[in-house]
Structures are given as structure tokens and as C-alpha cells.
Design a protein around this nucleic acid. Structure first.
Length: 587
DNA sequence: CGGCGGGGCA
């Protein structure tokens, strides 16, 4: 049996406070001069450092004969002392006293204990303040510990340390790192790590967990389809990722309005016996609501409740949002209170959803009350909360108020994003304030924001309406030049604008262009085009358009029909018969 | 592990 340092016993005897402890008293009486094992001494030290906050002063360096240098002693202490941070403190104290020089065994035991206790900072500081160099297996655990604590950069450093030592970590360690990166939204590091995985050949060990993280990383980077592709590949290979992968894809596709994919994913889940969880149900309800089947969403939601399942805050928020979209504010409000009753307090999402709901039905009183409540609860005003109010205001012809908020955002330093600009541009256009709209549009570009097709459309529409077709065409070209596809209906505005100016020839060109692009002009647009062509005596073209209209199932307004027939009769009776005959046959 | 909010032709 190893010899215990007798000095500790002297210390205990001389320290009255320590002696009040029954255990120490026993030691005092029975082991004063005898030998005792490390366990006993470690027990005593353990108790002291646990119960005496200022033990550093009562375990003074005046006892130079302390000899704790035997690795067994510290290892013993570590086993007994459940609070590893206290052990670390004792370790550092020991080191600065009595010539205690940390031995590798103690160091390893302490480091492992710190890592096991997920004490990232303590482990980091331990490595920094000692010359201890853990072996690869310890470093792998350390990586996992760092990742869980969110210290990704430190974890990556350790990865490179291992790499330099020629060690390729196990798949578990890689997975921990991938998971950690996801948590702090560092997908850039994920892809770098994945590259490393390929290089060191560990990809052969990739498991469902890895696949799940990679799929989530794709989704986080808005590369949902690539994530889906990966899922399909691993399914072929017989691997079924965990629900999280499916759920993330469902939510990603829901955002992209790829509802067919959502449906496919749900079918796959069923086929693979994946039991739906909170996230799946939330995704399903969201999917149903977003594709206009809010009623079905509500049924799923109510079924869940009937089955004794308690929806959580996100599910409530999704359902409230769905009901608001359907205009069922009363039902939405009922769920709001039900949710609160069940102990879920509205979060930022819930507030914004409900506020937006009230704005949409022109109930700004209620919206503003909720807005204030949200601020009072400590939720910050955000781009989203402002946008919600502003879209509501613009929707109800209160663009000036919206614009005041737009300026307020700037004063408060809240970022104005593309949606903010598009909303106000659209609002101004709707009220015919084209100059203001154009100014905002230029400001949008000046801010370095990438405009979307929806930034251009209201401007093009309004410019055409006020006869500024050339300017509209200029915007159209700008839009095409930066690779944006015009949204449905934009061609129509230009055709109508051209016809309004009597430019039937160019109107016809745009019509042909639409046909070539497989786009379908609106009925009214074509009516106007026919009328314009007729007035300009371009009867062949009129009939061409007319033929398209009949083929599409469109009707021609009586007045326009009359003037066309009149014109045709005036020109050449026989020709009319032929053409109309052909058109009717074609029908 | 994660999900929920603001826009968008008629």
C-alpha cells in the first residue's frame, strides 16, 4: 500500500475547522502517526475543497512537506470528487505549491474528466496552462465536447492537430463536428470537413447520422433539391436517415412551394416506417396551409389534439398562420388564447403572424395593440415585424403611413430588405405614385440589393398604364439582362400599353414572342390587341390573334367583334367568309 | 439535430 503524506494529517489536526468534520476527527484520532492509503487522504481533501469555499487560504503553503506528487493520489481524488471543476482548482493549487509537478497519468485523468463533464472552457484552459498533450482518443472526445459546446473553431483546430499527427478521427467524431456546425449555422465548415472526410477515406464509414447532417446542411444553404437527391441515393443503398432529415426537407420544399416534393417525402416516410414526430406534423400542417388546404391542416391539427397529443408553440403558430391566411381571424385568435392557456407564450413568430393577420383584415387597432405587447415582452422590432405592418397598410391604400414606417426603420437602424422595398414600391405604384416608386427602386439598387422580378413588375405595369411604354421596356430589358424571368402578366401590361399608344405592330410582336415562349396572354389583353390591330387595318393579324383566342377558349367582347366584322366586310366579303370559316373549323 | 413569421398577376 502506498504511503500517505503524513503532513496532511498534521494539517488537519492543526486546522480546527477541518476538525469539526466528523470524518477528519476520526482520522485525527486514529491515524495521527500511522500510515493511511491514498483513498482516505483523498476523501479528506475532497471534503475540504467541497465544503470550504476559501480552502486555498486554509490549505496554506506553510506545509511544505505536503507530498501529493504521487499520481495515485490525484487519480484517487478525481474518482471521489464528483465536481470536476473543484478538482481542477485543486490541481492548479497543487501545482503552484509544494513543487507538485503534474504527472501524465493525473493529467490524463483530469482532462478526461473535464471532457466527460462537457466542461469545454475548463478543458481548454487546462490544455493552455499545462504542457499536457492528450493522446488521439482523448482529443477525439475533446472535439465532441467542443462541438457540443458550440466551440467549432477550437474543434477544427484539434481536427488539424490530429491530421498533422496522421490520425483520421472516427466517424462519430466527424458526426459530432457536423452537428456542431449545423447548430451554429456554419455550413461552410461542413463542406470543408466533408472534403477532409473524403481525403482521409472516412467517407466509407458514413452512416445515417452523417447523411442526416449533410441533408440538413444542403437545406440550410437553400440547396434543398441537392439534399433530396442525396436522400434518394442513400435510400437506394438501403439507408434510412432519421426523421430530422425528412423534416428539414419537408420544410425546405414547403418554403420553395414545391408541394409535390413534400407529398413525395411524406409517402417515403410512410413507406420506410418512419414514425412522424412533432416536426413532421408541423411540416404537414404547414404544407397543407401553404397550398391552400388550410381546412385539411386544421383537421390534422384537431385530430392530433383529439388523440391527446399536445401541439407545441411552433405547431400553434403554424395553425394560427394558416387560419389568418384563410381570413379566419376569430378562429386564429381562439387558438392564440388556447395556446396561452396551455402555457405556451407567443414568441416572435406568433406575434408577427397574428399582427400580420390583423393587418390583412384592416384591423390596425388590434394589430398595433399586439405590436406594443410584443415590444413590452422584450421582443425586438425587426425587419419582419415592420414588413408585416407595412404590407397591411399598403394593402388597404395607406401607403403614406407605410412610407412613414419605412423611414422610421432607417432611423431606428432596422435593416430594410428586398421585401421592404418591394412592398412600398408596389404600394406606391398601386396609388399611381410612379415617381416615388422609381425613386425607391433606384434606392433599392443603390443599397446593393438584388431586385427580384417583383421589384420590376409593378413599375412596368404602371409605366405602361400612364403611356410611358418606352421606360417600361427599358426596365424590362434591365430585368432580362440580369437574368430575371418576368412574372406572368408582365407581357400583357406591355402589349396593352403599346395598344393604348396605337402601336399595333409592336403589340403583335410581343404577342408572337409570348407564343414562342409558350406563355398565355390574358383574354382582355388579346381583346385589346385585336381592337388595335383592327383599327390599324391589320386584319390578317387580327384574325391570327382571334384564331388563337378561340382555340384557347377565349371570347371576344361584342363591341370589338363588331368593329372587326365591319372592317372585314368593308374590305372583302369573300375573304371574310374564308377566314371565319377556317377559324370556326379549327374550333 | 430541427419546425413556426413579412411579398408575389387576377
Amino acid at each position: 500500500m502506498a504511503r500517505a503524506p503524513s503532513s496532511i494529517l498534521i494539517f488537519l489536526r492543526q486546522n480546527p475547522r477541518a476538525r469539526q468534520n466528523p470524518n477528519t476527527q476520526i482520522r485525527y484520532h486514529t491515524t495521527e502517526t500511522k500510515e493511511c492509503d491514498f483513498t482516505e487522504v483523498a476523501q479528506q481533501i475532497c471534503k475540504i475543497i467541497r465544503t470550504k469555499p476559501r480552502w486555498e487560504q486554509t490549505l496554506p503553503s506553510e506545509y511544505p512537506s505536503f507530498n501529493f506528487s504521487d499520481p495515485q493520489f490525484f487519480t484517487e481524488l478525481l474518482k471521489l470528487q464528483k465536481n470536476v471543476l473543484l478538482s481542477l482548482r485543486f490541481f492548479f493549487w497543487l501545482r503552484s505549491h509544494n513543487g507538485f509537478s503534474p504527472d501524465p497519468i493525473s493529467c490524463k485523468a483530469l482532462f478526461s474528466a473535464l471532457v466527460e463533464a462537457k466542461a469545454c472552457n475548463a478543458a481548454k484552459s487546462f490544455l493552455e496552462h499545462t504542457s499536457f498533450s492528450p493522446e488521439p482518443a482523448s482529443l477525439e472526445s475533446y472535439i465532441q465536447c467542443l462541438c457540443e459546446g458550440g466551440y467549432i473553431q477550437d474543434a477544427i483546430d484539434v481536427f488539424y492537430r490530429l491530421k498533422e499527427a496522421g490520425v483520421c478521427p472516427a466517424i462519430m467524431t466527424w458526426n459530432a463536428a457536423l452537428s456542431g456546425c449545423l447548430k451554429v449555422r456554419r455550413t461552410d465548415i461542413i463542406w470543408k470537413l466533408y472534403q477532409e472526410m473524403i481525403e482521409c477515406g472516412v467517407v466509407a464509414d458514413v452512416d445515417v447520422e452523417t447523411v442526416g447532417y449533410l441533408i440538413q446542411a444542403f437545406c440550410a444553404d437553400n440547396r434543398v433539391s441537392e439534399g433530396y437527391e442525396l436522400l434518394r441515393q442513400v435510400l437506394v443503398n438501403g439507408l434510412v436517415p432519421e426523421n430530422a432529415a425528412f423534416n428539414t426537407l419537408i420544410s425546405g420544399f414547403c418554403k420553395e412551394k414545391q408541394y409535390t416534393r413534400v407529398s413525395e417525402l411524406l409517402h417515403t416516410m410512410i413507406a420506410k416506417n418512419c414514425v412522424p414526430d412533432n416536426y413532421t406534423y408541423q411540416g404537414v400542417i404547414n404544407w397543407l396551409c401553404k397550398k391552400g388546404k388550410g381546412l385539411e391542416g386544421l383537421r390534422v391539427f384537431n385530430d392530433l389534439k383529439d388523440r391527446g397529443y399536445a401541439p407545441d408553440i411552433a405547431m400553434y403558430t403554424t395553425m394560427i398562420h394558416g387560419l389568418c391566411t384563410m381570413g379566419w381571424l376569430g378562429e386564429a385568435r381562439k387558438l392564440w388564447f388556447e395556446m396561452i392557456e396551455k402555457g405556451y407564450h407567443p414568441n416572435e413568430y406568433t406575434y408577427n403572424t397574428m399582427i400580420h393577420g390583423f393587418c390583412k383584415i384592416d384591423n390596425f387597432e388590434e394589430a398595433k395593440t399586439l405590436y406594443k405587447e410584443m415590444c413590452n415582452k422584450g421582443y425586438k422590432e425587426t425587419t419582419v415585424s415592420y414588413n408585416a405592418m407595412m404590407t397591411g397598410l399598403c394593402l388597404h391604400g395607406r401607403t403614406d403611413e407605410a412610407y412613414r414606417l419605412f423611414q422610421e426603420m432607417h432611423q431606428k437602424g432596422i435593416v430594410r430588405d428586398l421585401i421592404t422595398y418591394n412592398t412600398v414600391i408596389q404600394g406606391f405604384c398601386k396609388e399611381g405614385k410612379i415617381v416615388e416608386s422609381m425613386n425607391l427602386f433606384r434606392e433599392l439598387l443603390a443599397q446593393g440589393l438584388q431586385p427580384s422580378a417583383y421589384s420590376y413588375t409593378p413599375l412596368i405595369e404602371k409605366l405602361c398604364q400612364v403611356g410611358a411604354v418606352q421606360e417600361a421596356k427599358g426596365l424590362w430589358n434591365d430585368m432580362k439582362n440580369i437574368g430575371l424571368e418576368p412574372i406572368v402578366g408582365t407581357h400583357d401590361y406591355i402589349i396593352i400599353g403599346l395598344c393604348d399608344q396605337g402601336d399595333a405592330a409592336e403589340g403583335m410582336e410581343w404577342f408572337i414572342e409570348m407564343l414562342n415562349s409558350k406563355l398565355k396572354p390574358k383574354q382582355d389583353t388579346l381583346g385589346i390587341l385585336v381592337e388595335c390591330l383592327t383599327q390599324r387595318d391589320r386584319l390578317d393579324d387580327s384574325l391570327l390573334v382571334l384564331e388563337f383566342m378561340f382555340r384557347t377558349g377565349y371570347a371576344l367582347e361584342k363591341g370589338i367583334c363588331h368593329s372587326l366584322v365591319n372592317k372585314l366586310c368593308w374590305e372583302d366579303n369573300h375573304f371574310v367568309e374564308n377566314c371565319l370559316g377556317e377559324i370556326l373549323e379549327g374550333k
